[in-house]
Design a protein around this nucleic acid. Structure first.
Length: 119
DNA sequence: GTTCTCACA
DNA sequence: TGTGAGGA
């Protein structure tokens, strides 16, 4: 199928699909015309990419762990330690980010005056 | 009508 | 990532 159909079937914009290719996440075949040709399996691959992206992983990380994922009922099944590891690391990053935000919020409270109404 | 590349008020 | 230009 060409990019238009894949976009419709996945709900992902053509722009995004071309971007995924640029990032090495999807490698469609090419027609002599230059048109991209995707396989049926790419529909599932795009779903995995979306899930991983939503989990906060960058395209580089996704490219590494994409091959060790098994699709099951629209969900992902970690099929090798690298994936579980990447997911754990991402989880830790989120914890760190939350911690920094809490600190920033505390600083703001001090400046504004915690509990007092800001005017 | 569909897709392609490139560039950015 | 969206959008539009200019072409095939």
């Amino acid at each position: 199928m060409r990019i238009g159909e894949l976009a419709r079937r996945t709900g992902v914009s053509e722009r995004a699909l071309r971007y995924y290719e640029e990032q090495g996440l999807l490698i469609p075949q090419r027609l002599p015309s230059g048109y991209r040709v995707y396989g049926e399996t790419d529909v599932a691959v795009v779903r995995r990419i979306r899930i991983l992206l939503a989990a906060g992983l960058n395209t580089a990380r996704i490219q590494e762990i994409l091959p060790c994922i098994v699709d099951e009922d629209g969900w992902l099944t970690p099929d090798c330690p690298e994936l579980v590891d990447a997911l754990r690391q991402q989880r830790n990053r989120i914890d760190d980010a939350i911690g920094e935000l809490e600190t920033t919020r505390a600083n703001l409270d001090t400046i504004i005056g915690a509990g007092r109404r800001a005017s």
